[in-house]
Every structure is written in C-alpha cells, then in structure tokens.
Design a protein around this nucleic acid. Structure first.
Lengths: 330, 330
DNA sequence: CCAGTGGTTGCAAACGATTTCAAACATTTC
DNA sequence: GAAATGTTTGAAATCGTTTGCAACCACTGG
C-alpha cells in the first residue's frame, strides 16, 4: 500500500534515463523510438501520469474554463452546461463549475477563476459585480456573459435575439386575430425578460394595441401556477399570453386546464427557449427556439478569438431565435 | 496593457517584505498586523491572488473533485450536479465536470481526474472500465459511484434502495386492487433499472402475480411515447404500470391521455425519482422520492471518511426511498 | 581525415507558491 | 541586568514538470 504517487523522477530512475527524456516521451520532443516505448512501458507499470498542476505552472496556462452558474431552475441551464462541457472537452479543456447560489453573488466564482488561472470565465447567472469584472479586465482574464446580461464594460457576451423573439410572438398573436394579448414575466425582472417584453410591446404598439402585463409571484412552480390562475380568472382575461420562459408557459397552460379554458381557441400561449418538455404531448407548446448548440459554438469561437488576440474590442453576438409553431397558437 | 499576472514576488518587492511574509498574509501564519494590512493593500492594487496551481503543487493536494457524467437526459442528473457543486463549494473544493458521452467511455474522465490529482472522482454514468478503476485503486484515488452501479471492486458507492422502492410500488398497486400490473423499463437495462424491477417482481410474486414487462423503444421522448402507446393498446392492457423513471412515467401518462384512458381508474402509474415535474398539475405523478440532498450528503461523508482513512474497506450506502402518493394511483 | 549536419540526450534553470529553520527582536521573570 | 521565553522575520529548500542550451553521437560529403 504505497500512498505516494510516482513522479517523473521515479520513472526516469526506473527506466534509466533523464527526466527530460520522460517529459519528452509524454509531451513530445525529439526522442528515439525505442527509448520512448520503454519509458511509456515503465510509466505504465508505475501508474505514472504527468501532473497537470505542475504542467500548468511551467507552461503558464491551465486549459481550463470556469463556469459561474446559479440555481439551475430551468432545464435550459443544464442543457447548456452539458453542451459546454462537451465542447470544451473537444478543445482539450476542462470545465470547472462554480455555483453562485449564495444570494446571487458571483464574485466568489469569479475570484475562483482568477485563482485557478482559468483561460476564461463564463457567466450564466445573476448580475456581474463591477469590481470583480474590473479585476478580470485588468489581469486580462476573458469574461464571457452567456444568455443573460451585457451591462458590464470590457466583457464579451452572447445573448438571444430577445427583442426579435418578442416581435415574432406578437406577430403570431396578431395573425391569429387575438384581442387581448398579455405578457407574463418572471418575478424579478432580468435582462432577457425585459428585452423580450420590449420587443413584444413594440410590435403590439405598432398595431395599436397595448398588451397587459403580469408577473409570476415567485420562483417555484406553485407560485407560478397561482399567478397564472389569477391572471386567467380576471373579467378582462387575456386571450393570448406571451411568457418569458417555457417554464412560465407550462404554468399558464396548467392554469388554463384547471379553469377549463380551451387552448388555443380561448387562449393562445407562446413560450421562450424550446426546452425538451415543450415538445411533450402534455404541452405541445408554441415557443421560440433558442438553440443551445449554437450558443455554445459562439462561445467557443469567442474564446479562441480572445485567446488569440487579447486586445480585441468586446464581442457581442446575438443568437437568432425562431418560432416553433405547435398547438398552443391558432 | 500589462499582460503578465503579478506574482508573490512582485507583491513582496512592492511592499518591501519577503515573499514568506506575503505568503503568510494570505495563507495564515505569524505576521504583525500592520504588515499584514499593508501587504494586502499592495496586493489589492496589483490584483494579486495566489495561484492555486502553485499552491496545489507544494501542498500536495488540489481540493478539487472530478465528476464524470454522461448525457444528462434526466432532470435528476442536473439537480444532482447542482447540489454537488454547492456542497463541494461549502467544503472549499471545486468541481470539475468531465463529460463521458463519447460512446459512454468513462476512462477519459477518470484519467483526467488522475492527471488533475483530484481529491476524488465521482462517477454518475455508464459502466466503470476495469483498468481505469484498478489504476485509481493503486494510486489511492478515491472513486465514488453515484446512483447507478457498484460492480467494480475497491470503490465506494451510494445508490437508491431500488429493490425496496420496487416493493413499495408493488404493495401500493396491490392495495389498490390492480389485476394486471406491468413493468415499464428503459431500453438498455442498467443496474438501477434491474434492481427496481427485481423488487417489484418479488413483491408481486409473493402475492402470486406475475407482472408483464415492457420496454421503452429508445432514449428520446417520442420513442418512449410510442412504446407506451403500444403497451396500452394491447387487448390484455395493464391496469397498473410501474416505471423505471419519472420520465418514462410521463410518457405513459401522455399515451394514456391520447387513448382516453382514465387515470387512475383505468390505469395506475408509479414513477421513480420524484423530479420536480412530477408534482406539476399536468402529471401529479405518484412516485418514489429519491432525495438528491441526501445522496449528496452521503457522498460528502464518504469523501471525508476516505480522505481521513484511505485504507478503509469499500463503503456502500443505500439511500431509502419513500412513496409520494399523488393522483396517478388509487 | 575533417568539417559540417542533424538528431538524441541530459543538465540546470525556470514556473509560483509554502514551510522549515534559525536568526533577530521584543517581552517577561527573577 | 541577565536569562528565559515568545513572536516576527527572511533565506532557502521544496513541490513536479518543461525547455533552452550545449554536449554528444553517428553520418555524409568533400
């Protein structure tokens, strides 16, 4: 039961070569073929593998990326995480996830990224504190905002074409001849929430209609359901509701079901994100598709670009969204 | 635009002290109060923070844990990841996620954990390859299997009380007076799938009943729905179905809806996991609660125990599951 | 035979921190 | 005032790897 991990020195001694030779056997460099195979064989019996900590130290780069993420209350978040982890693995990097749930303070995760000398930090939750962001910019750590916000200077961002999505939803409702459209947003307004509303409102205004506005009463499904029920029990009940997220839309559909409203005849509903559940038989939700794969691809591109040319001006990418028409609209 | 990150030496020079002093200011150690504040202040203006790579090197520990995970097709997986990340953060460790989607080969992720000198590797997907597992045991890297399998020697595991869950489901069906119970499992049988079936089958057998067995035709929701529809269209259609996961149960409920079967009168359904969606109005699924928080807590305990006493015999923990009765059973 | 060439090798200096050790200093006790 | 004790301090060794450099080797061509 030998606890100590074998090091490059052990392998060198055992194989009767210098440490440089061992290093070159693993990381490449001129080395005769027979010596290389012998070294690898010895390394195998000793269970030796180079320590990435020591490598990062001397190479001055870690090939790791930190993702700062909050509560993943939306299935979209886990899809995103999975796709991101995979894309990073393909580019030979590891993903470190730093949860930021503690009162939505991201700085902890950001500072962890700094300590780890990550290649970049990707932020997918909450609001970026200004001082942490400044620190990143000063030390040249690329910061990429994902899907949510872009209110801090010097950082890159990829976000959905939220306004356009709102406009598409409004257009769809108008085509369907709706009379009393409404907006159903999240409890605490966020960047994307507000943009989606803005687009929806603008398009409706262009048709001379002022949509009503409602909000979910809380974070959990029950609170959402309650708020949706209240909205649909009013005398001037809306006949078309655009929801900030699919999750809200599910609540609306369930409330409609409980109130025996026929969808889409009495009530049309549109969501946002196109999470897998939206396609289920129970919902068949018309929604705006926000393609995760595309988001991740853009992030990877930004990452490479930034790493290649650190001085670049902030990059902002809008991901187009497209309306997936299912059975909750007419 | 100074690209080079400042090091402990820069701070020492700037503050007019030795590097030891700076180290002590950050990591603790005897140091006069005024000197400490001065150092921290200088470090602040220089944006200095200790490099964790260098720290791990000299301290011989990384305070990181690697999670090897596959496709997160079940919401349960993302809940698990989130809870785990948080628990680890609380214990001052970071979470590295290594995706193992490529033809379900885990060894890549496991070797990454080895390279990273992680404190432990947690495996939540697929089957552990024997050689990778052996390597971990030899070098003393703790391996913890989560929720799925325990067929490899020398590794710890925490799994649901799957058999017991199956028995509870069977008992519930029997109490409700079902006549033709059935099992609905995943396409490619897995450890937990099989255990759940075994428990269900045993309890039914004790009552002199042999349940029918069906399988989902594929991984995606559509394939599950098709298989469920076929199952419910048979002349000897089951009147009670126990599903290996909630996700399968949703498919069954939707198929039942499409066939105009009344739940729970014509058909009772029980799932497994109690994912958040199971509580939704659209499903109100009776299911076995597999408490994520508990799973994570056990993992953390095992982790600490293993780190404190590496020579320990393999630890196996069963997490009790409890039946949550909603509206899909009578 | 000798200079030139090109591929292998190993030494030793980094990389950025911590920590042991002994010296220096300050404080208490007799 | 001296000895004993305790607290700060910095020099230097260390962690495990990579890599620039120079030495060495075996050839090749003149």
């Amino acid at each position: 039961m030998n606890r100590r991990r074998s090091t490059i020195k052990d392998v060198a001694r055992e194989a009767g070569v210098s440490v440089s030779a061992v290093s070159r056997a693993f990381s490449g460099g001129s080395l005769s073929a027979d010596k290389k195979t012998r070294i690898l064989q010895v390394a195998g019996t000793l269970d030796y593998r180079p320590s990435s900590a020591a490598q990062s130290l001397v190479r001055q780069q870690t090939r790791s990326v930190t993702l700062v993420t909050g509560r993943m209350h939306d299935p979209f978040d886990s899809q995103f995480l999975e796709a991101l982890a995979e894309a990073l693995a393909d580019s030979g990097r590891r993903l470190i996830v730093a949860p930021a749930s503690k009162q939505a303070d991201l700085s902890g995760g950001v500072y962890q990224a700094i300590d780890d000398r990550s290649d970049a930090v990707i932020i997918a939750a909450g609001t970026m504190p200004l001082d942490a962001s400044r620190a990143c910019v000063r030390i040249g750590l690329p910061v990429i905002l994902a899907g949510r916000i872009l209110d801090t200077p010097g950082v890159d961002a990829v976000v959905a074409a939220n306004c356009d999505g709102g406009r598409q939803a409004a257009a769809m409702f108008l085509r369907g001849g709706c009379q009393r459209p409404a907006w159903f947003g999240v409890e605490r307004p966020s960047f994307s929430n507000d943009e989606r509303l803005a687009g929806f409102h603008a398009q409706m205004a262009a048709a001379g209609i002022e949509p009503a506005r409602f909000e979910a009463g809380g974070r959990d499904d029950e609170a959402i359901f309650e708020a949706a029920s209240r909205m649909l029990s009013r005398s001037d009940r809306p006949d078309a509701v655009f929801c900030a997220t699919d999750r809200l839309a599910f609540g609306v559909l369930e409330a409609a079901g409980a109130l025996r409203l026929a969808v889409p005849r009495d009530l049309a509903v549109i969501g946002f994100n196109n999470v897998p559940a939206a396609a289920r038989r129970s919902y068949r939700l018309t929604t705006l598709d926000y393609p995760v794969a595309r988001v991740v691809a853009e992030i990877m591109e930004i990452l490479e670009a930034r790493l290649a040319a650190p001085g670049l001006a902030p990059i902002r990418r809008r991901i187009p969204v497209s309306l997936i028409v299912r059975e909750t609209t007419r």
